[in-house]
Amino acid sequence: MAGEQGLSADSKAGLSLVAAPFAYAIVLLALPIGAIILFSFWTQDFITIDTTFTLDNYREALGGQIYRTLLGRSVIIALSVTVVTVVLAFPIAYFVSFHVKPSQKSIWLFLITIPFWTSYLIRVFLWKVILGFNGVVNSGLMGLGIIDEPVTFILYNANAVVITLAHAFAPFAILPIFVALEKIDRSLLEASQDLGETRIRTFFRVTLPLAMPGVVGATLIVFIPTIGDYVTPELVGGPSGTMIATMIQTQFLRLNNAPLGAALAILAMASVTAISLAFIWLNRRWLR
């Protein structure tokens, strides 16, 4: 950082204000992440930590069939959740931005965000009630005579995890897309139509490209946290919907193997980061 003498009064005032929150984030975020990285190169035997540097945890995490399956499945589920959530969210964001009167926009956004703030655990549990064997969906479909016996492909598997997470992350996807759509200069759309484009072609050639930053933001803000979700796979996932967080929890709290748990957490983070960076890079190339 620049020397103290080189800083203007404005810089000093800014730095002294931001110092407390920044230091807090360093101590409770950067240092712990540093510690977890360090731990992943150590080993643990019940309670004693062996601090010899080793790659054993990574060898085990990448070599063990169960860890590989769980990591791969977590990535695939997170990707599916992201695609489903963003695709379902876009029309809502578009509707609120283009078809709702300006005075009513904030009430729509408020309605969309309310369910997000209410008890996460109980919300996820209720999806079990909705999707279950005697659940709301099955009773409803049987009552209407559409199916004769309960369908089972919607609970205790990856589908249930995707549906439940798509519900949980809906506002995270809607808001960034909405903000991007709000920024679009409406006269550009008129210009495009005046120049003879149809409404559909205007959407694909003007609206969508201009909304892409919001879509990218939505994608990342859904994809990154989803991979580490613990509650949803535990409650509605069943054996075929278990994700990596369950294994991380098991290593830390049940098997007392924090270093292996740390290595799994870091591998999960590394996969998410790699995929996110690749996605951003592709987007830059494609948008140019």
Partner: peptide, 19 residues
């Protein structure tokens, strides 16, 4: 950096603080 916890999976925050 201060805004980072907004996107970080909570389990990462949880296990690193536990350590």
């Amino acid at each position: 950096f201060i805004m980072l916890p907004l996107v970080l999976p909570e389990i990462i925050v949880a296990v690193s603080l536990l350590i």
